[in-house]
């Protein structure tokens, strides 16, 4: 059903208000019970196994993070906790490096999302204007970077030359605009009615005011989707920190965690006796995952909407 058709049928639907007696037979209101077929059972079984396979690693990490060292050594692979201790979390939260890394990740994520959102929105808004002269050329210029980039050496030289090494900017600015996100946003803006902006112009708004006061507030789904994309990227990214941060005190949580997990394997080859306990690795994994898990439910409802609305043209 097209949107105009939906709008036409809406008044009829409104008459079917709760509390009003429906004249239709009662049994018709009942949802027909669907018969389960063999295929459904197989389907549910496979999906259940897949779900368990997805949940198990998280569950395992959670269990180990609360284990005592002795409990872990007695049985490294167990489904149900065989011991319980908060010592590892206590250590993690009192460890300066963990605390500092969380702070740096928060700084980079909040700052990065804000900067990226503003820049992406401005780029997308301009490119969504059909009347923009040279729009196609600009668009091709942007698209080109999706398929070909300058490579890592120029990026490294550029960031170093701008003296951004060992600063928060090295973790934010190089990836401030993601072309894919920009296209998503641009498509969404294109789908907004022209009349909205025309009305704003009549009221005396300039382009910035239109973007920040009219367009962005009307584009909550795409804004939240883009915020999610950028937030997850900045929170998880370790590569830029690996390239540009030399002082371990300034490592974001992702790089700190990554080092911690791979360290025992690498150190082993040099015969060194530095070992990060599995419980601590697990605890830091849990700590790093929790913020994303807390954040996701708030934007989930906009997520599908944001992607789909931007992609469908009428």
């Amino acid at each position: 059903m097209s949107l105009p058709q939906q709008l036409e049928t809406q008044p009829e639907m409104e008459t079917d208000k709760p509390g009003k007696r429906n004249k239709r037979p009662k049994r018709n209101r009942k949802k027909p019970k669907q018969k389960m077929h063999v295929f459904d059972y197989i389907n549910y079984t496979i999906l259940t196994i897949l779900t368990l396979a997805t949940i198990y690693p998280f569950w395992y990490v959670l269990v180990i993070s609360f284990s005592t060292q002795e409990g872990y050594y007695q049985s490294a692979y167990h489904l149900l906790p065989n011991s319980f201790s908060l010592e590892t979390y206590k250590y993690a939260f009192t460890n300066d490096q963990v605390f500092r890394s969380i702070g740096i990740s928060l700084t980079v994520t909040i700052g990065g999302v804000l900067i990226s959102l503003v820049l992406t929105a401005m780029g997308a808004y301009v490119l969504s204007k059909q009347k923009l002269k040279g729009r196609k050329a600009f668009f091709i210029f942007m698209i080109f970077t999706m398929f070909f980039n300058g490579g890592i050496v120029p990026l490294y030289i550029l960031v170093n030359s701008l003296e951004m090494r060992d600063t928060v900017w090295a973790l934010i600015l190089p990836m401030a605009i993601n072309t894919f996100n920009l296209i998503l946003m641009m498509n969404y803006f294109s789908s907004l009615p022209e009349s909205l902006e025309e009305a704003a112009k009549i009221d005396g708004c300039n382009d910035f005011q239109i973007l920040f006061k009219i367009v962005l507030p009307s584009s909550k789904p795409i804004v939240m989707t883009i915020v999610l994309f950028y937030a997850v990227f900045y929170w998880n990214d370790w590569f830029l920190a690996m390239l540009f941060i030399s002082n371990q005190d300034y490592y974001p949580l992702s790089l700190f965690l990554r080092n911690m997990i791979i360290s025992s394997q690498n150190f082993m080859s040099t015969g060194l006796a530095i070992q990060v306990p599995e419980m601590l690795k697990s605890a830091v994994i849990v700590i790093s995952v929790v913020p994303v898990m807390l954040f996701y439910p708030f934007v989930q409802k906009y997520f599908v909407q944001g992607i789909m609305l931007g992609s469908v043209k009428e």
Binding site: R100, G103, I104, T107, G111, L114, T167
Partner: peptide
């Protein structure tokens, strides 16, 4: 947000 960012940057970098 700007204030918070400034504070965080000052704290951690």
């Amino acid at each position: 947000v700007v204030l918070m960012l400034t504070l965080l940057t000052g704290c951690f970098f």
